[in-house]
């Protein structure tokens, strides 16, 4: 799992997605091919907005997992660090641990979201 995690570090540690210079679409997670423009598309990595709105959420295994629409319209699924979530709640990115590979393996860091007070 180490190389698989390492390959995506740039896109997990910050909300870096793809922007198509041809059609102006934002994609998260990063794509290799623009679904609209296909081979004519020109995708580049772009840092996405830090803030967004909760479209929906669930609480599973004691964690809030939410579908978040970022301010540029792209969507990301992420954990929300809060006691409670609500549809429409405004949130901002936060750097957190998502897990670890046992006691001896690597730590999986990534982007979560916290309510904007």
């Amino acid at each position: 799992m180490v190389p698989r995690f390492w390959r995506k570090i740039k896109y997990r540690y910050d909300v870096v997605g793809s922007y198509c210079e041809k059609c102006g679409s934002y994609y998260y997670p990063k794509r290799e091919l623009c679904p609209r423009c296909r081979r004519k598309g020109r995708l580049r990595d772009e840092k996405f907005p830090d803030e967004g709105t909760i479209l929906s959420y669930t609480v599973v295994n004691g964690r809030i997992i939410a579908m978040i629409e970022l301010n540029n319209g792209a969507r990301t699924l992420a954990e929300v660090c809060a006691e409670k979530a609500e549809i429409g709640m405004r949130v901002r990115k936060a750097f957190r641990r998502y897990g670890e590979d046992g006691d001896a393996g690597i730590i999986y860091y990534g982007t979560k979201f916290v309510p904007i007070c």
Binding site: R12, S56, Y57, T58, V60, N61, R63, I65, A66, M67, L77, A78, E79, Y98, Y108, G110
Partner: peptide, 14 residues
């Protein structure tokens, strides 16, 4: 999806 803690029930719940 799975990385952030969502399993199949979680996604249907959303």
């Amino acid at each position: 999806e799975r990385f952030v803690g969502a399993n199949l029930p979680a996604l249907y719940a959303i």
